[in-house]
């Protein structure tokens, strides 16, 4: 029993509020604001294999840190990004949220995720589980949390896929 670090009780409501706001930013197309939620070393990861543990030894649908994500976000605003015309619209649904303490005062929040996506030519739905690793933030400006990891395990990650045009 070392007990050196007193763990702060997890404010479940604050975690859920953060998850819903993060999803809302994507649904509202506020991608710059969404990017700002990521910590300096934050990762956005959608594995290409079920239960993937190796980020480098197997291809991922998305595997990006801020240096790549900021290019992705910049492209989303380009007037001639053909797969984004018109900009797809999404609706996120998060449910069954569980929160648990992680290392260094971070919080792991796991949720079932459904994203309905409408784009020219049809609708798509993404289903899976979202795992967020959240670090305490710095109050209102920086938000309550910073994203260390946003991981989405799609149930059909290794199945036939159409183009995923926007972050989900």
């Amino acid at each position: 029993m070392n007990g050196a670090v007193a763990t702060r009780p997890i404010d479940r409501a604050a975690v859920e509020e953060f998850l819903f706001r993060e999803a809302r930013l994507l649904d509202d197309g506020r991608f710059e604001d969404w990017l700002a939620l990521f910590d300096e070393d934050g990762l956005y990861w959608i594995p290409g294999l079920p239960g993937q543990t190796d980020r480098f030894g197997a291809a991922s649908i998305v595997h990006e840190d801020r240096t790549v994500l900021r290019m992705r976000v910049r492209r989303l605003g380009h007037p001639r990004a053909w797969s984004l015309m018109p900009l797809p619209r999404t609706a996120h649904m998060l449910g069954g949220v569980t929160v648990s303490p992680a290392e260094n005062g971070a919080v792991e929040a796991v949720a079932a995720l459904q994203v309905a996506l409408y784009r020219a030519g049809g609708r798509t739905r993404y289903d899976g589980r979202q795992t967020m690793l959240l670090r305490p933030g710095f109050g209102p400006g920086g938000g309550d949390f910073r994203i260390a990891l946003k991981r989405i395990d799609l149930i059909d990650c290794d199945g036939v896929q159409g183009v995923m045009p926007v972050p989900i």
Binding site: I46, A59, S60, V62, M71, R75
Partner: peptide, 27 residues
């Protein structure tokens, strides 16, 4: 090998910023 994996993700993943526009043009 890690570079080849990375190359695949960048150019040929469903979320590729490059392939997405090729596929859009095919359609």
């Amino acid at each position: 090998f890690h570079r080849a994996v990375r190359f695949l993700t960048n150019l040929s993943s469903p979320a590729s910023m490059i392939f997405a526009d090729d596929a859009e043009i095919f359609e």
